[in-house]
């Protein structure tokens, strides 16, 4: 009997906790859109300066690491493809494989994972330590809404910088594949570029772009949600920062899967 109650209790608790978290996230989402889309029309403006600063931080400052990693991933992909395709003498298909995989899948995913590690964690840590230091309370008492002051600028900056980074990352990744394929595998540069141009379609481009927009939403909201969850002191900040990265990457992969299935049948 106690075994049965334990199982039901466990399932119930998990479901209730999940439901509770879902409600909290929904509130956050509604509130964010309220402060970005509705309130500015009523004269409660956005914090443009802060948005631009975050744009530089999330976008421009992330580019070196995103670019480097994506360049290397492109080269790795070309090499692995060559290893398999050379058995069939089909090495010119490296171009197709690298470009399509980069544009549809790997560039958005790598960018999102790197931005999560760099910026998602920073968002959680910043909001978390502000909460611990009563700074969030101070904002509220001053009549400054924390969503407007803290979340809206980060959200907008993330929404612009992640798709932009993804586009750049795609080109860098294809460039990495090109360099390796022409220099190491020995494919003729002209042929490689021609095959790349033939392989890519507008649909591939939009797939990657749509994904990256949703990745941006995940990174921002998970970071913010985890940040506001912080309780206690420095230990809580650490735990929620770690958790924000893990949760964010998990949901990025889930969203990625959903869109991949969706676009596969489209």
């Amino acid at each position: 009997m106690s075994m049965v109650t334990a199982v039901f209790g466990w399932t119930g608790r998990i479901s209730l906790n999940g439901l509770y978290a879902a409600c909290r996230v929904c509130l956050l989402v509604v509130s964010t859109f309220d402060w970005i889309l509705v309130r500015p029309l009523r004269g409660q403006g956005l914090r443009v300066r802060s948005t631009l600063l975050h744009l530089v931080e999330f976008g421009a400052h992330s580019f070196p690491v995103v670019g480097l990693v994506c360049f290397l991933v492109g080269a790795i992909m070309a090499m692995q493809a060559s290893y398999q395709l050379s058995r069939f003498g089909a090495q010119q298909f490296i171009a197709d494989l690298v470009s399509v995989a980069a544009m549809r899948e790997l560039a958005p995913l790598m960018t999102a994972v790197l931005v999560t590690g760099r910026c998602g964690s920073a968002i959680a840590a910043e909001i978390g330590s502000m909460k611990v230091a009563e700074e969030i309370d101070a904002l509220e008492v001053m009549g400054i809404h924390p969503i407007r002051f803290l979340v809206a600028p980060k959200f907008l900056a993330m929404l612009i910088s992640v798709p932009a980074l993804t586009m750049l990352a795609t080109f860098v990744m294809i460039g990495g594949g090109y360099l390796l394929a022409t220099a190491v595998v020995g494919i003729e540069p002209g042929l490689y570029l021609e095959r790349t141009a033939n392989a890519l379609q507008m649909k591939d481009f939009s797939t990657g772009l749509v994904k990256s927009v949703f990745f941006a939403l995940v990174i921002c909201w998970v970071g913010v949600y985890r940040g506001f969850q912080v309780e206690g002191g420095a230990e809580g900040v650490g735990r929620m920062t770690t958790s924000s990265v893990v949760t964010s990457i998990f949901w990025i992969v889930v969203v990625d899967m959903m869109f991949t299935v969706f676009f596969y049948f489209l």
């Binding site: 906790n17 999940g18 509770y20 978290a21 990457i249 998990f250 949901w251």
Partner: peptide
Amino acid sequence: AGRGDTTG
């Protein structure tokens, strides 16, 4: 909702 209230 304490720890692990969402997945991950």
